[in-house]
Amino acid sequence: MLNIENLHARVEGKEILKGLTLRVKPGEVHAIMGPNGAGKSTLGNVLSGRDGYEVTAGSVTFDGIDLLALEPEARAAAGVFLAFQYPVEIPGVNNTYFLRAALNAQRKARGEKELDSMQFLKLVREKLKVMQISDELLHRAVNEGFSGGEKKRNEIFQMALLEPKLAILDETDSGLDIDALKQVAQGVNALRSPQRSFLVITHYQRLLDYIEPDFVHVLAGGRIVESGDKALALKLEEHGYAWVKDHGEPAGASA
């Protein structure tokens, strides 16, 4: 489904990703772990097409198409979803309105019929129930005045509604207390399916207690230096990232 080959990317002239290779098949959950500055968030941003991230080498294909050639909205329509580490506030734009505009834009791009407001509301209610989110959030402006936990839950709720094929969770656990973390994880688990893949980007192992990954990769110095199953995450927890440096990082590749 997602094939990342030898990806190199620069931000503000500085090379952050230095030859990252990763393959994700449908239904798989991959955790990307790594120390600060390893390039974790860069990966999420490059995949979703944020400005200012320059790909200098390598390729990314998604269901066989060249993902990097697409505009951000086209990637969304193709089924890529990024749950932001810092969701943006958009004053005055109603959350429901925003979601409907997004969903219909994606449906239109895929040649599907747009939903009218009745159909949309029905869908929203279903998803709300699954996500255990109060509909009060819907009546407010996008992320405006939301607490950190509300913002993250709103991201997962958007994901539930937009039903992507690939969801990238960019440090979704950061800033959450244990209860909020559990809620978010429950939401994610409810969305797991044989067709949907996840890239879970995180600094800490604790999120993986709740979202169980099929694979764990360690990103350091702009490339994946170690891959394994969830035992790897536990090992990291025990030994810290210094262990990875000693253990896995090729000489001369440090950032």
């Binding site: 944020r50 400005d51 969304a76 990024l82 925003f98 969903l103 834009a105 994606q106 958007q158 937009l162």
Partner: peptide, 9 residues
């Protein structure tokens, strides 16, 4: 970028 990443042109 937030809007576009949700599919809005």
């Amino acid at each position: 970028f937030y809007c576009r990443s949700r599919g809005i042109g």
